[in-house]
Design a protein around this nucleic acid. Structure first.
Lengths: 121, 121
DNA sequence: CTGAATCCGTCTCGATACTG
DNA sequence: CAGTATCGAGACGGATTCAG
């Protein structure tokens, strides 16, 4: 009874992309196919367990594709699906927006907010 | 000691937009100025407390602007900043992507995943 | 190498009650 | 009406261990 199966696509997409890792994994996978261990190296602060969980989540969402090769040692490749590829520029746009955002002039309201932050600390 | 002040803009922007509410609040605010109680009505499942916290987070991020009017009963307006306005179409693009995503053809791998989902349910 | 399961600390979130 | 403080439950994330 956690969610109400929202009708809103924005709510649904954020359920998949929310969190620190999904967008980062997307970022690393846009270069092409990667193995599990490659992604581990790309994100040193991401635990083994979390990597597995997040990859699974993205796979279920149809954003990445998982390909397991039989043999030993085990080998699994991950790459973006067609759908995932289309998502990448949208995420990049968010990153671009964040960088531009700093260029906006600082108005009095913002200064006041920064003071509040100091108070809280 | 929770975060490492990432250099990556994608990671930073997701720190602000992650979660169920930030993008939804953006969605409701794109119609124009809203009061605290308006946003409460727009999101019945969002608790009073969380609304205050999320609004504060977005304010600190420079995405929304808070305007308090002295007097009684208290009245506070929220609206998007210039920066926040520019963010709206990017979020909408994500929503659009989610809706289109369903149109992609279903390959064997995906079918297998969907079976897994059924199992989990 | 990949990944699932367990254990356990931490932090987020929601309910409630209180202030201005 | 708007916002804050407190508290308990539950989700989340990391370390470790086991399996294929």
């Amino acid at each position: 009874m956690k969610d109400v199966v929202s009708n809103c696509p924005i709510e649904e997409v954020m359920r998949v992309l929310s969190g620190r890792w999904p967008t980062l994994l997307l970022y690393y996978l846009k270069d092409g196919t990667k193995r599990f261990s490659d992604l581990q190296r790309d994100n040193p602060t991401l635990s083994h367990r979390m990597l597995a969980l997040e990859l699974r989540k993205l796979e279920v969402a149809g954003i990445i594709r998982r390909t397991a090769y039989p043999g030993y040692p085990l080998r699994v490749d991950y790459d973006l699906t067609a759908s995932g590829l289309k998502l990448v520029p949208l995420i990049d746009a968010l990153g671009g927006w964040w960088e531009d955002r700093a260029g906006d002039h600082v108005d009095p309201a913002k200064a006041k907010i920064q003071k509040r932050l100091v108070d809280a600390a």
